[in-house]
Design a protein around this nucleic acid. Structure first.
Lengths: 141, 141
DNA sequence: TCACAACTGAGACTCAGTCTCACTCTATCT
DNA sequence: AGATAGAGTGAGACTGAGTCTCAGTTGTGA
């Protein structure tokens, strides 16, 4: 059986090599966000022999193909999230780390207004929302 | 004469020492965003003797007091921008690096909608806009 | 099957940021 | 003004993420 991620990688025209299959497998098994270091640790734990450089290289490719997105956490560190190719934003639960995606929900009006006020021509934006997911909200009141 | 930043530092209750005055001076002379490394280089160039650790420590304090804000650039690196203490967002010119600030312009509607769809309770958000400022737009068509 | 471009791992390297520690300075109190 | 506590300091070692190089390997289209 082939994971959806592996299929997307193939469709994106990224050469399917042994190490890449292995790393894709590790990503598919992950829930929520992960760092490059997480994958390296996973690989070592499961006796999957993959070089650190290879992990970084594959992540770069996946980001370029928008199969994975890079998220800047509030503490300044970086994480990756496997995601849909369409434009969307992330909600990060600061309590358990789970990430939800929302597609456009009115941000265009905001960017247009900001452009009008400043004279900028806006090409891209990044919106990240931080808070607590439904479960954590319930657990801790 | 005392810079506005220096005055704000004093008002924030941050002890005013020689090295801090020097670094504040360097920040005040900067236009747009800068990195901690930029300040270290500036200091060396002007023969201001300030340790690297001191620069990082002061930046941390300024961020905590919201006199300076940390921005995540699209390439994943970090920069700092001196700014107003009130909540606002940054527009980064990807061509010349200048940064404009806009205060709230309708983002609340977006966060409310995202919260409704996902069940999250949203505590914080980060919005960064990237594009070209008026000048660069004109220069390059 | 073959040839070659793309990929690989190891490990050296870079660079931002942190930490420690002995020393120095500032603010405050008398 | 002088004493003092405790905050701040610089040097430099350290950490950890990410990059780069290079010789050897592998996937793929012909």
């Amino acid at each position: 059986m082939q994971s959806a991620l592996l299929r997307s990688i193939d469709q994106a025209g990224i050469r399917l090599t042994g190490p890449r299959r292995a790393v894709a497998g590790l990503i598919a098994k992950r829930d929520g966000h992960f760092t490059a270091a997480d994958l390296v640790v996973d690989a070592r734990r499961r006796r999957v022999e993959v070089g650190r450089a290879t992990v970084f290289r594959l992540l770069d490719l996946l980001v370029a193909e928008r199969l994975v997105e890079r998220v800047d956490l509030p503490d300044g560190s970086h994480a990756y999230v496997p995601c849909e190719a369409s434009h969307h934003h992330h909600l990060v639960c600061t309590s358990c780390g789970v990430i939800a995606e929302v597609d456009d929900c009115g941000i265009d009006a905001v960017t247009t207004e900001a452009a009008r006020r400043t004279g900028f021509k806006i090409d891209a934006h990044r919106l990240e929302l931080f808070g607590r997911c439904g479960d954590c909200k319930r657990k801790r009141g």
